[in-house]
Design a protein around this nucleic acid. Sequence first.
DNA 1: CATGAATGAGCCTTCATTCAT
DNA 2: TATGAATGAAGGCTCATTCAT
Lengths: 191, 191, 191, 191
Amino acid sequence: MVRVKDETKRLAIVENTLDIVFEKGFAGVKMATLAKKIGISVSTLYVYYKNKEDLIISIATELIERETKRSSNSITADLPFKLKIKAIWVYWINFSINHSKEMNFITQVKKSPYYDKVPEAVRETKSRLGTDLFELGKKEGLIKNVSNEILESTMGAILLETVNLIIDKKLKLNKKDIDLMFSFAWDAIKS
Amino acid sequence: MVRVKDETKRLAIVENTLDIVFEKGFAGVKMATLAKKIGISVSTLYVYYKNKEDLIISIATELIERETKRSSNSITADLPFKLKIKAIWVYWINFSINHSKEMNFITQVKKSPYYDKVPEAVRETKSRLGTDLFELGKKEGLIKNVSNEILESTMGAILLETVNLIIDKKLKLNKKDIDLMFSFAWDAIKS
Amino acid sequence: MVRVKDETKRLAIVENTLDIVFEKGFAGVKMATLAKKIGISVSTLYVYYKNKEDLIISIATELIERETKRSSNSITADLPFKLKIKAIWVYWINFSINHSKEMNFITQVKKSPYYDKVPEAVRETKSRLGTDLFELGKKEGLIKNVSNEILESTMGAILLETVNLIIDKKLKLNKKDIDLMFSFAWDAIKS
Amino acid sequence: MVRVKDETKRLAIVENTLDIVFEKGFAGVKMATLAKKIGISVSTLYVYYKNKEDLIISIATELIERETKRSSNSITADLPFKLKIKAIWVYWINFSINHSKEMNFITQVKKSPYYDKVPEAVRETKSRLGTDLFELGKKEGLIKNVSNEILESTMGAILLETVNLIIDKKLKLNKKDIDLMFSFAWDAIKS
DNA sequence: CATGAATGAGCCTTCATTCAT
DNA sequence: TATGAATGAAGGCTCATTCAT
């Protein structure tokens, strides 16, 4: 069937682009190389994406939307505040490790000029690690009373560093190390 | 003496490369554009650097060496531990802001394939934010008893995020905000 | 019947091709663009025409044949020579203006490499502005005694220029201006 | 010497471009083909011209300026009006034949979208076949009292047609044929 | 040391055309 | 007949690098 074939191919393009960006960054994405890796013709790439920029921005948009949706889904559990935020922390560590290429792609895009061209609607709904959550924590007097943006940035930075340390084998993906790193993050933001 | 003229020109090359990398990343460094910006011929660039890779790696090496030297110089003051570490923190915040292009260059290089080609000796002597210092803090029982690498990474991540927040105007370069952000870092590592 | 649908589509192809050639020349005719303009699939174009060359040559052939037929039809009125030739002149001015896209297409084809591939039979029966007519004029001693080809070329050039001046709004499509321009043509060929 | 070499190469580019446009039109000008014809690298073309459009527009500008200068120079002889205009006529016939490729290039450019990008100053000073001259002729009551633009267009059309007939071997470049064709033009405009 | 000129190696993109359904 | 998908071939352009002066 044609439909299946299409989606398979599109996914292959996305997958391989992610791989290349992970290994060599955006500059490393050559349309010809990408096509060869997938086993299709260069022109075929242009059937799916208008041009290289469109390719990258489309993938970025897709990933960010997916990430956004996921992050909002992850804040459902009904737990005491600290445990709740830890659950999210653990969730994101695992997700980042398991989807390191996607996360890497998003991270790179955010620092690149491509990001300006991601639809504004998508950019706005991005990485809500927990605006509502921080609000709650502040109300309960559990975390420092500073802007959500700063809380989020700080936790995000520690989280990303944790992931990098795990990837670089300086930390392990076990309870002890995860707990340790969470203590860094929690101690940083708690009041 | 010819030497003087040379050094001026070499500095101009470094300066302009820093500017371009800051604005457009490594991919934005075109030998022709760079030369035009400086007001010299493209060929002249090749008198000073063997090729583009050499240009970037040489600059990176120079900057990293300078940074390393500076960081070791900064740990001289004789103060109680927390104040000492805060002094370093403040020093580095200021330095990073005042030398944002240099810092940006180093940051970018570390994430790029170029970094593998920076002389190993230089890579090893890098950013010693305070190995000795952390050792001291742990001995006094003031900070978490974990590897220096993790302490350094965590503080480094928070520091970098702080700098970014300042650059993005989300934070100001005043005592209040600096103190606030230091509290994040200190709380994270203190035992 | 299927036939009706076909003819409609074929006419749409011709019409839109004429439009594009009028606006952007042959190089502006992209099979994909043309198809989209019509609202059909690119592949469908290939059902009607073997390839792009065939498309253009077929349209050219069709238009030239139609024009040829028309020109011979136009020399029927029974009038004194000068009036007869003026009638034809006026007829062609009007026709050229009203069918500027068709005329433009023919003009362009004649100057393009495509023209060599128009069936010879068609090329030969072309724009007979009045071979017989010129013969008559010469017999009556009213026009210069030179080859029909030269007479026709000259009148044709002035006619085309007249049409262009009208299109460029340098002349109007009224009796005065038409008469004026006819006087140029007539004075040129009269003996 | 470097200077000489440059000019030689630039002239070769112009010459070969003229040839190609004469044979195949603008669409026939492929940077690779052009370079190979000249015996230089494609990149070298880009040393002399920013891109293909710049190549064509620069050549057009150069040719039009030269033509304009020439045409104004040609109206110097002190002769009775009809002889004067004939002298110019003969001059232009000869020039057009001898420089058919240049003339062809200019003609083509004027009908192409490139023409809009020729510097306005150049476009304005173009083909002054004889505005002043026509003014004189009208004052002396020798030619039709219509706008110079129309007189010029008409004569221009007949002149161009004459050149085409000569190129197509339908006319010869001898006194008899030139005189004949001038009579068409003169009779057309004379009062 | 300084540079103008020249170039090869790529890269992105377009487009007419084919083919299986 | 109608078409969505795929592609080969080609063309324009960029850019790091070399070389003779």
